[in-house]
C-alpha cells in the first residue's frame, strides 16, 4: 500500500526529472517524496551518484557543490533541500 507523498513544487519536479535522467533511476520522477532522504535506503544512492548529480546540477544550474560546505549533508538531505539550495545559488 503506497503511502501519500508530499506534493512536489515545480522546481522540485524539474530537479526530480534531472535526478531520474542523470542516474537512470527506474522510478517515475513524481514518485520521489520531496522530504525523504535522497541517500540511504529509499533510493539507494551512493557516492558515485553524488558525483554524477553534482555534475548535472553544475551544468543545468551553474551551481558548484562542495564537500567542505558545512551544509553539504543538509543540502543533499532531500529533494526539497537540494532544490532550495539550487534556487538560492543558481546562475543559469
Amino acid at each position: 500500500m503506497p503511502t501519500a507523498i508530499d506534493h512536489q513544487t515545480a522546481e522540485e519536479a524539474e530537479l526530480a526529472r534531472l535526478l531520474v535522467e542523470t542516474l537512470h533511476l527506474d522510478i517515475p520522477p513524481e514518485s520521489i517524496d520531496p522530504v525523504m532522504p535522497l541517500f540511504g535506503d529509499e533510493l539507494g544512492l551512493d557516492s558515485i551518484d553524488a558525483l554524477e548529480l553534482a555534475l548535472a546540477i553544475s551544468r543545468a544550474y551553474g551551481v558548484e557543490i562542495k564537500s567542505d560546505d558545512a551544509r553539504n549533508k543538509e543540502i543533499f538531505a532531500s529533494l526539497r533541500s537540494l532544490a532550495g539550495y539550487i534556487a538560492e545559488h543558481r546562475t543559469r
Binding site: S47, L51, S58, E64, I65, K66, S67, D68
Partner: peptide
Amino acid sequence: CGDAFYPSDILA
C-alpha cells in the same frame, strides 16, 4: 588532508 571529492574540492 581534507575534502577532495567534487571537482570544486579537487581544484581547491
